[in-house]
Amino acid sequence: MSRSHSAGATFAAVTALALALTGCGADSDPLDDSGSDGGSSSSIAIGSANFPESELLAEIYAQALEAEGLEVERSFNIGARELYLQALQDGSIDLLPEYNGALLSALTEGGAPEGVSSPDDVYEALQDVLPEGTEVLEQSDAEDKDTLTVTQETADEYGLETIADLVPVADQLVIGAGPEWAERYQGLPGLKEVYGLEFKEFRPLDAGGPLTIGALLDGTIDVGNVFSTDSAIKVNDLVVLEDPEELYLAENILPLIRSEKVDETVTEALNAVSAALTTENLTEYLARIQVDKEDTATVAEAFLSDTGLV
């Protein structure tokens, strides 16, 4: 088989193929409308980030709205903030649970403005930077912060209590977090700017998930980004480093929603959820998923009935 055919023929084949593929893309458009792609005005497409707590919160929102007779579509486990915010803006999803401080950081060039750290400050500051056509409803008391966490042994070995204690030893330590930490302000750039921290190596893993916990426990990494509500902290006796410079702001949970989907029913239902959520009960219900392996829908249902919302 010779490969000496003319470039012209190759070009013709590429063109033919491209045309055929474009054609088939257009053909499948009608399916898009009838499929589960959202976009029908009556139903609310709910998204979540790619970690269990976000999925639990999204499921709680979903069931709370369903209890009001609204139609919802679930589009969970999308990815990191950088990705799901795009999905929100292009209308793939209408609503998702967010964390006020992280959202503010993500939406503000160079991190959150100075002097903003209390939940109310953050909420206030958020109003100015939300993407057009979106808004946040009332925030809950429940907080889940990004943390830098180490094992008890590492803490003892280097005498670590706060993030600032890492500074003299950071060049010997490997840090692990979701890939987005490489560029996110609340990741490495912020740690460098606020604390002057530069680690020996960054290992891109997952958003406080099993990779990060696993790597922390088996010594692949020394410092990990773990969420403060994660049951793994208690189960594995991990040490959460304090954050004296408040790089990690208030992280209250709140619904981020496309404005066109906001009406009285939606607002009331979601505000009731926010009012019922606390850091304690969130941690407790999340443990039922993470430790007891109960499924998300069951735990969400239990939360709503235990708190008397549904």
Partner: peptide
């Protein structure tokens, strides 16, 4: 490339159609 939404199932369908072809 084809201007679909990021989460659209159409992306998966088109991608797998390309492999099939």
């Amino acid at each position: 490339v084809i201007g679909t939404k990021v989460l659209s199932p159409v992306n998966i369908v088109v991608a797998l159609s390309i492999y099939t072809v």
